[in-house]
């Protein structure tokens, strides 16, 4: 390879000073950020009581537990577990549906093209955000205090926490809708309600249906753990069996959850493709 003549390099240097003489600040930024991140990481390890001996003995314990888990075996409680799994699926389906039904009208109020007033929109948005900031398990605990132990508290917990997520997603979907159809309805003399019904909803509903189906899958996972705090479903059995160290039953329950989630994932994926087409869903 031939080298560039010296004169030409000098010319290049003069032309692109940023590349040949990057200021120290910009050169050091990346290593400094990496070093800070690493320092916080080490501080975290120390602060959270990580010790190698504890880690190794824990790993040994974990290995022993995994050995105990094989083979998965429900013992004589299979009917009980199947019923709990059915409860979990019911909680997921009902919670998601209720949340979607509640969030649709409220989502309209958070969308820029429906409610132009920033003053009205802002509190609705923040309201959704604060609901989303609280985890489903916390909502489950709150609802247990209100309606008592059992799956009903789980349904309400999923409803509330999804309400926050759906409100945000729906309002974003509505904002992304094509404004021209709404204008068309208005031009033909439609009222505000007609605009929403005939201009907005036909565009938005398939998107929303896709999101709801997607959430049913992730809610199956949430619904399988809210039992840990007593809100019904398979989580209750799982937490109990872990506490009494029945590892074969634990692994069986985990397997049941995995299979259920996979099946729901498959079904909801098929339905999503059917509704919004293969390309849009991917």
């Amino acid at each position: 390879m031939s080298r560039l003549p010296l004169q030409q390099t000098a010319e290049l240097r003069a032309k692109y000073p940023d590349i040949f003489h990057r200021p120290a600040a910009s050169r050091l930024a990346t290593p400094a950020a990496a070093l800070t991140a690493f320092a916080v990481f080490i501080f975290g390890l120390v602060d959270l009581d990580f010790s190698p001996t504890r880690f190794v003995s824990g790993l040994r314990e974990l290995g022993w537990i995994s050995m105990m888990m094989i083979p998965p075996d429900p013992g004589s409680s299979l009917p009980l577990y199947l019923k709990a799994l059915g409860e979990t699926l019911s909680i997921a389906l009902l919670g998601t549906t209720l949340a979607a039904l509640l969030a649709l009208p409220v989502g309209l109020f958070a969308a820029r093209n429906v409610i132009p007033s920033q003053l009205l929109r802002f509190p609705v948005r923040r309201f959704f955000d604060s609901i989303r900031g609280v985890d489903t398990l916390i909502w489950a605990l709150v609802w247990i205090n209100v309606v008592g132990l059992g799956p009903f508290a789980g349904v309400l917990a999923i409803t509330v926490s999804d309400f926050g997520a759906f409100g945000k997603l729906f309002s974003e979907a509505i904002e992304a809708a094509d404004q021209r159809q709404v204008e068309g309805v208005r031009a033909s003399g439609g009222s505000k309600l007609h605009e929403i019904r005939f201009g907005l909803l036909p565009q938005v509903l398939p998107v929303i249906a896709g999101q709801v189906l997607y959430f049913i899958e992730s809610n199956t996972r949430s619904a399988s753990i809210i039992g840990i705090v007593g809100a019904g479903g398979i989580g209750l059995q799982l937490a109990e069996q872990i506490r009494v160290l029945e590892w074969q039953k634990v692994s069986f329950l985990v397997l049941m959850i995995l299979v259920a989630v996979a099946v729901i994932d498959f079904i909801s994926g098929k339905l999503r493709f059917a509704i919004i087409g293969r390309r849009a869903a991917a």
Binding site: D49, R54, G58, L59, E61, L62, I228, L238, V254
Partner: peptide, 24 residues
């Protein structure tokens, strides 16, 4: 990714003892 995090936490609390290490 399919097994919920809190289930891992439940098991790790037994293996590694109570405390933030299991959570991490």
């Amino acid at each position: 990714r399919t097994v919920p995090g809190i289930v891992f936490a439940l098991i790790f609390v037994i293996a590694f003892g109570l405390g933030p290490m299991a959570g991490v």
